[in-house]
Write a protein that binds this DNA or RNA. Sequence first.
DNA 1: GCAAATTCATTCGTATGCAAATGATATCAA
DNA 2: TTGATATCATTTGCATACGAATGAATTTGC
Lengths: 153, 153
Amino acid sequence: MSGEDNLLKLVEVEEADDHDYLLQEQVGFILRKAHQRHVSIFAARIADLTPPQFAALAKLRDVGETSQNQLGTLIAMDAATVKGVIDRLKARGMVELSRHEVDKRRLLVNLTPEGRDAIERLIPLAREITLETLAPLTAKEIVTFMKLLAKLA
Amino acid sequence: MSGEDNLLKLVEVEEADDHDYLLQEQVGFILRKAHQRHVSIFAARIADLTPPQFAALAKLRDVGETSQNQLGTLIAMDAATVKGVIDRLKARGMVELSRHEVDKRRLLVNLTPEGRDAIERLIPLAREITLETLAPLTAKEIVTFMKLLAKLA
DNA sequence: GCAAATTCATTCGTATGCAAATGATATCAA
DNA sequence: TTGATATCATTTGCATACGAATGAATTTGC
């Protein structure tokens, strides 16, 4: 029985046999592995920055100065996580922080010139990372896959 | 310009304009979000076990007693990560550890009766997690997506 | 205008995830 | 057989990731 048959069975029948549960066919398990592979490709091409750090810089380049929380929303990180990422970028001089003058709760984040240079320099490498991650697929498959993946995310 | 057009352009042209780099269209960023969504669905249905812990138990159910390293290979975890996962499962009485009699380097891992009960009980919930994760797709799209995702992972 | 609710940020605790270094054991090869 | 390699496991250090609790500041509702 192929993986596809199992999948169809899973969708169609009401009660499945527990012996049929195969971890390596579950979408969560494969998603985790695909993500791991991407992170590994990323690290091989961009050694001095993690994907979340890159995401923060790339988004700041898009939108300019924003609050830490808003940035977290834009790059899908909760408040606790984004704080750590921004702290480390600040320690490396890539971003600078300031208080919002009107709303004193907000911590504004912006690229420094060094941060801007870094993200501009890294974007061509990031394009290669995307291509290498998608390399197992044909051009047509890439279009299909990205459409479906976006529906899941 | 649609996301698909950008994608095609990325594949086809030799040199792209840096202004075209959009984080939210990159496969790595969307993979990370899809994985996050899955973990969130998992946590909502199985509160007392993480996906990696579940994966360890499910694989032990498949293959029976194995070395810690071999288990890590089977569930795509490096040695340091699998050690932490197994330590926590052991602390909760789900697995038991023993030394391999011939090769004294190996640490054998096996389900306890409690661990076996737990994984048998959780598998039906895991099926639901898979279905809910894939719920944004039609049955046909699921087949296509799983085939392409497997090629990437 | 004021109490309640909301928002922004921080901190703590727990759990992956991986690189690198280390130690113990096993295997290979000259 | 023994010296070089390889394998298995552990430890340390660093970086996400998120729930829950907290405090400060703002907005809402009446």
